[in-house]
Amino acid sequence: MVRTLAMFTDTSLCIGCRACQVACKQWNELGLEVPEWTGGYQNHAHFTDKTYRLVRFIEEPGGKPNGDLAWLLMSDVCKHCAEAGCLDACPTGAIYRTEYGTVNINQDVCNGCRYCVSSCPFGVVSFNESTGTAKKCTFCNDRIHNGLGPACAKACPTESIQFGFRDELVGKAAKRVEKLKAMGFKDAQLYGADAKGFLGGLNAFFLLLAKPSTYDLPDNPRLPQRNVMVDSLLSIGSALVVGLGVLLSFRERGKGGPHA
């Protein structure tokens, strides 16, 4: 693997212009989608098979350092987790990790079992009815393999979305968060920057101005696969109970003779 690439989305610089969302749609040729009413500017409510970048608009009364209303703007995207639930769940190997550390779905291999959809702790992966396959942000795989940054980062006018080597971006991000804290944003925090943190770190990580749940992000996302061992043991345990029961009943019937 070559040096890991990342996207750093600094929500403190986001102005909610949605250039990223549109650039993503345009570059990836994602089609038309009838929006639902979300109560405000945000469309759509969640990631879909045609919306890989999604700018969230969150009204937070009292959320500004001076106590004013905050309108939290955040361009959300697939996190390209170092430990990716979707990738682990994929039974066909369609979901793979590139040499840059990004997570991608090979559309020619995916058979649409949709297990990855529910395995993503962030609800990123979506099922496309017309292709019958799972879809999500590709980190503009075609672009990064041709020396270009992702379309969303390219389109961002305020450098809220930065693209580069992960280690460099993490350093930048840490400095930025300190600065914001000094400016009075007491809840400013990085989300997914720490490679020792949850999911082994996110290759698309964020600077948030409020706690993650405010942005519809889990506070402490975990790999769904963590359940496999416990549940399997439970299964074996219950199998033993049931097996014993069945065994006993047949033993009893075997002993009982014709009257049983």
Binding site: A89, P91, A94, N111, G112
Partner: peptide, 26 residues
């Protein structure tokens, strides 16, 4: 039949992931 692309059901046999219930299940 439930797959998005049923003709690709054999792709399940491309890999075996022992920790993955979907793979194991298939």
């Amino acid at each position: 039949a439930d797959l998005g692309v049923p003709t690709r059901f054999l792709n399940m046999m491309r890999t075996l992931k022992v920790w993955d219930p979907m793979s194991i299940g298939a």
